[in-house]
Amino acid sequence: MSTATNHPRWTRQLAGLVRKDLRLELRTKETVVAMVLFAVITLTIMQFGFGTRDDDLTRFTGGLMWVTLAFTAVLGVGRSYVAEREQRVLDGLLVSPIPRVVLLAAKAIAIVIYMAIVEVVVIPLVGIFFVKGPYWDSIGWIALVALLANVCIALSGTLFSGLALFTRARDLILPVLFLPALVPVVIAAAGATHAVAAGANDMADYRGYCLFLVAYAILFLLVCVATYDAVFDD
């Protein structure tokens, strides 16, 4: 008898892993619901902490939005491998003929989707809480920034959550590694959001920040491809 399979296509492996993560999330609703609640609570606290509805907080919009999303991302990324770790499934994945970078890509795609769901709530809420001006006209541009930033967050987050997975103090180590790596993303995403929010429409600034996010994503993609095999090596 011979093995019934030849080299499996990585696209099928990737689709299978993403489908699995989404199925788990749909069934348990543990990660996305917690992320959305955390983000809404944080924005609400900031709204009370920074002043009343009469104060014009428009110039802080980008910062308030992206600091909130950065901390929310830590929450989501921290749960990336919870099912594999707690249900002891990781060996099953690692003994299969899957390139380790496909594992990373699947987790990154799931995080991008989770962050996008959070942003569907957060981006309008920021407009309601903090902006006085034509914010809603800029929603499309802000969504594009969010997409780019999500890719950056997902790539760096998945790399660090993979690294933290094999440490005892993983809940402490992940934020310590991940949050500093998010600082450039927060700066660029907040800058790009500020450039288009409230009718500023400084497209030169916006493009610059977006290009920075693209460069960041490419850099982390290369780091992930180069190191992810070693992350999962014993």
Partner: peptide, 26 residues
């Protein structure tokens, strides 16, 4: 292994579908 290496919140069929994807089972 000692553990079933299966996701507890998925069904047996969904778990096997996942592994079929990972191994490229026709």
């Amino acid at each position: 292994a000692h553990d079933p290496l299966a996701y507890l919140d998925l069904s047996p069929r969904q778990n096997l579908q996942l592994y079929a994807d990972l191994y490229g089972v026709p």
